[in-house]
Design a protein around this nucleic acid. Structure first.
Length: 167
DNA sequence: GCCAACGTTGGC
DNA sequence: GCCAACGTTGGC
């Protein structure tokens, strides 16, 4: 194992499929990851994400919940335009264009998996017991994923990218 | 729909 | 700067 693999940046991003699903991303090709209103999640997008980083797309608040595909970061961070939009449900009256509060990145579609890897399956896998998404009570919507966890999830999913990422 | 866990706000 | 109250997330 070389140090190179440790430098792979991997993420997991949650979305409620009723609001925005992997199918929506596939159809659009890419999207601005609007509406994140949590500072930890924002900081990840603002400070740590780089163009080309791979993202597990996760469907939350749905039965069953789980990982459904792969996306890729495809922009530098920039202010979430919805914070300035009074008509948006994501409007933030405390944000100004001079001092934006909420920063996002664009993500592009990579692949949809043949079947969801359910949260239940993630929780049942001993290799993933330290993965953030399976921890009780955790609800961070943008989270870093350790490469060993990332690769394993892709293997469970039968991802076409799995081989390339682990190589 | 319930509610545990967590994050944010605001009074002090 | 503490912490109670409140609002939200998200699994179940």
């Amino acid at each position: 194992m070389t140090k190179k693999s440790a430098k792979i940046r991997c993420w997991l991003m949650k979305s409620e499929p009723d609001v925005f699903s992997i199918d929506d991303l596939q159809r659009l090709g890419k999207t601005a990851w609007e509406g994140v209103r949590n500072y930890t999640a924002r900081n990840s997008m603002r400070d740590d994400m780089k163009i080309g980083d791979l993202v597990i797309f996760y469907h939350s608040s749905v039965e069953p919940a789980g990982a459904v595909g792969l996306a890729r970061v495809c922009s530098a961070p920039y202010p979430d335009p919805t914070q300035f939009d009074e008509k948006s449900e994501y409007h933030d009256p405390k944000a100004t264009r001079e001092a934006p509060r909420w920063i996002l990145v664009d993500v592009e579609f990579v692949e949809k998996w043949p079947a969801m890897v359910t949260l239940q399956a993630l929780k049942a896998d001993k290799k993933l017991k330290d993965m953030l998404v399976v921890q009780k009570g955790q609800r961070l919507s943008v989270q870093a994923v350790e490469p060993r966890h990332f690769v394993h999830v892709l293997q469970l999913a039968g991802s076409a990218q799995g081989e390339a990422v682990s190589a």
